[in-house]
Design a protein around this nucleic acid. Sequence first.
DNA 1: ATGGGCACCTGGCTGC
DNA 2: TGCAGCCAGGTGCCCA
Length: 244
Amino acid sequence: MRERRLRWPIARGLERTLAGQRLQAVERRAKYLLLRLERGTLIVHLGMSGSVRLLAEATPPRPHDHWDLILENGQALRFHDPRRFGSLHWTEGPPESHPLLAALAPEPLDESFDADYLFRATRGRKLALKQLLMNSRIVVGVGNIYASEALFRAHLSPRRAAGRITRIHAAALVAAIKAVLSEAIEIGGTTLRDYVNAEGTPGYFSQKLFVYERARQPCRLCRTPIKQFTQGQRSTYWCPSCQR
DNA sequence: ATGGGCACCTGGCTGC
DNA sequence: TGCAGCCAGGTGCCCA
């Protein structure tokens, strides 16, 4: 550990707890990485600017390389996070019961996230559709980029009150979310500035974005200039002609 | 229960 | 050139 002050301070003595334990599986729930060890689970969140790299243990640390998980093959899993919005937690119980994970909604690519579920989840909600999509008690994994992109593909306005969509809209939106996320995963995610995977390679989905960070540029479907505004302190991008 | 706003933090870019 | 101001892949928590 070089810097314990992340979003929450890294627990004292964690090194001692982890030492000697074999890594048994790597899983994920929402945006939490779950490293299953022999006596518990290491829960890692990358925040907005975090990344993990698999490197030779002797690789000199760069600024903002906050901790290493040193493996017995001479490599290290190295956590890098300039903004320190990420976090690291240890739990010996089932990770799905951890306070940060216990109340999470379905995974977007799970079959339980379907039109019927989203339609019911939106009933009575006055919140704007885009903000609802980013609520982890409705669905997880849909961040600021993919919320704008999915709404574009579903032809729905980010400002529309969530409770005012039809069952048909819910079906279109669910399909759009699943498509956007699947396509992005397929090409390694969206690198805007500094995201890299464990091998250090960026993702290429930024080349496939229809609206995100395209303010004033022509819509790729209708040529109308893309617009930007703020919802819940986050930038939203949309095409006022394609999306209603 | 719901929704709004703030907080955490650093770096890069813009414009005066 | 220097510096203030603004913006950025997230999400937990407090308050009305």
